[in-house]
Amino acid sequence: MTKIVVRPITDADIPGAATALVEVHATDGYPVEGVEKPEAWVRPTGIMGAWVAEREGKIVGHVAVMQPHDEGAVSLWREKSGEAVERIGVLARLFVVREARQYGTGERLMRAAMGYAQESSLRLVLDVMTKDAAAIRLYERLGWQHIGEVTHHFGAGQQIPAVCYVWPAD
């Protein structure tokens, strides 16, 4: 039986998480930006909490809850709900290497982030690119609610459609 451990990230995990990120980018094209500096992408400013999934000593997944910026899903949710920006967290930087997906790793990472949000009295929102169908299926299966669409801008004038969700926990 393969055991996946989900736990808060440590500084020692950053290189392994960066390696996993590069692997996910090669197989899935996620993320669309940031892989040229994967350690910085895994550990940007504005992190409220972050977790890794580990399998047999190897980092195989990651998720973070980020401070909100009034754009994308944050803006859509604030318009719909009137929620104060201080009560919102952004679920971000979720990735799992292909070999670890069959063990419910993505769901376990999501549940760690959702548990943190619940303990911190935060409403979670997220943007996901429409091309990332497996992630969309996971969010919907976990009860996240669709709140609208945005365009994600990146790189030198590039853009890609994205869907926005809110986690409806009280």
Rank of each mutant, 00 (worst) to 15 (best):
E119D: 14
E79A: 14
Q102M: 13
G143W: 02
R108S: 07
V125A: 08
E107Y: 03
T130L: 14
A135M: 00
S81Y: 06
D132M: 14
R108D: 02
R87H: 15
F95M: 15
I136V: 13
W77E: 13
A73P: 11
L76D: 01
G148V: 10
R111H: 12
V74G: 06
R101E: 04
K131Q: 05
G82M: 14
W77C: 05
G82V: 13
F95R: 02
L94S: 02
G106S: 06
Y103K: 00
L138T: 04
R98E: 11
M110T: 04
G115W: 07
S121G: 10
G143K: 00
M129W: 02
A100Q: 07
G82H: 09
G72R: 04
E86C: 11
M129N: 11
R111W: 11
R123K: 12
M129K: 12
H146V: 00
Q145N: 00
A134K: 01
E83C: 13
V90Q: 04
V97A: 06
V128N: 03
Y116E: 13
Y116W: 14
A84H: 14
R123F: 07
L126V: 04
W144L: 15
M129Q: 14
V97M: 09
L126M: 12
W77D: 11
S81C: 08
S120P: 07
E119F: 11
E99A: 15
V85P: 12
D132C: 03
S81F: 05
R87N: 15
S81K: 07
L76W: 09
D132A: 12
V97G: 05
R93W: 06
G104F: 13
R98V: 07
I136M: 10
W77P: 04
G106N: 08
G148D: 06
G106F: 10
V74Y: 05
T105F: 10
S75N: 07
R123C: 08
I136F: 00
V96N: 04
K131P: 02
A112T: 03
A113Q: 05
R101G: 06
A73Q: 09
E83H: 11
S120Q: 15
W77G: 01
Q145Y: 00
T105D: 02
Y103R: 07
G115P: 11
L122I: 02
W77L: 11
S75F: 12
D127W: 09
W144K: 03
R87W: 07
L124A: 09
A92H: 05
K80Y: 10
R87V: 01
Q102F: 07
D132F: 14
A133M: 09
K80M: 13
G148W: 09
S120E: 15
V90S: 03
G89F: 09
W144H: 02
E107W: 01
K131I: 10
A134N: 06
T105E: 11
A100R: 10
K131D: 10
L124C: 03
K80T: 02
L94N: 07
A92D: 12
V125Y: 08
V90G: 06
G148R: 05
G115T: 04
V74I: 00
V85C: 10
E99M: 11
E107D: 12
G72V: 07
V96Y: 06
G104L: 12
A84S: 15
V85L: 15
S75Q: 13
G143D: 01
T105Q: 07
T105W: 12
T130V: 14
S75Y: 08
T105S: 09
Y103L: 14
E86S: 15
A112L: 10
W77H: 15
D132V: 11
A92N: 13
